[in-house]
Amino acid sequence: MEHKEKGTKNKALAALEFQLLQVQKKVADWLNNKCRNLPASALMVILIIFCSSCASLLVMLIMGKI
């Protein structure tokens, strides 16, 4: 019985993984279309701001400020 439940869980996880990958692909395609006409310098500034924000958030999490 337990083996049968494991198979069902694996199928459910595989279906969930497939759905998440489909959503990820749609979002990536949408973002690519939106950013296609931006100059390289603007993309670099966006990347630097994003990475700085994530790093700041992680430092705050580590220090227990959040």
Rank of each mutant, 00 (worst) to 15 (best):
V45H: 03
I62A: 09
I49G: 01
K11C: 08
K65D: 05
S41Y: 04
M1H: 14
L61R: 03
V23M: 07
W30I: 13
L38Q: 00
S52H: 08
P39E: 03
M44V: 10
C51Q: 09
V23S: 02
A14Y: 01
R36L: 08
N32K: 11
N33V: 08
H3N: 12
Q19H: 09
K11Y: 14
F18I: 00
L43V: 01
N33K: 01
F50G: 00
N10H: 07
M63N: 03
N33H: 02
A15M: 01
L58W: 05
Q22L: 09
L31G: 00
K4Q: 15
I48R: 07
S52C: 14
I49Y: 10
L47C: 10
S56I: 14
T8Y: 07
V23G: 00
K11P: 00
Q22N: 13
S52R: 10
K11E: 13
C54E: 15
W30N: 12
L38F: 15
K26H: 06
I48K: 11
L57N: 03
I48V: 13
G64K: 04
W30D: 11
K26V: 01
M1E: 00
T8L: 12
G7W: 05
K34I: 04
N10E: 13
M44K: 15
N10T: 02
N10L: 11
Q24H: 05
N32S: 10
A40S: 13
Q19W: 04
M60T: 04
G64T: 01
V27T: 13
L38E: 01
K25S: 08
L31E: 05
E2Q: 14
K4S: 15
V45Q: 04
V23F: 02
A12L: 12
G7Q: 09
A55D: 02
C35F: 07
S53D: 07
I46T: 05
C35T: 13
F50Q: 11
L57M: 08
I46M: 14
K11R: 13
N10Y: 08
Q19N: 09
L13K: 15
L31V: 07
K11D: 09
V45F: 04
L16E: 14
V59W: 02
V59S: 04
K26F: 02
I46A: 15
A55F: 05
I62V: 12
A55I: 06
D29Y: 04
R36F: 08
A14R: 06
L13E: 14
K65Y: 12
L16C: 02
F18Y: 12
V59N: 03
G64N: 02
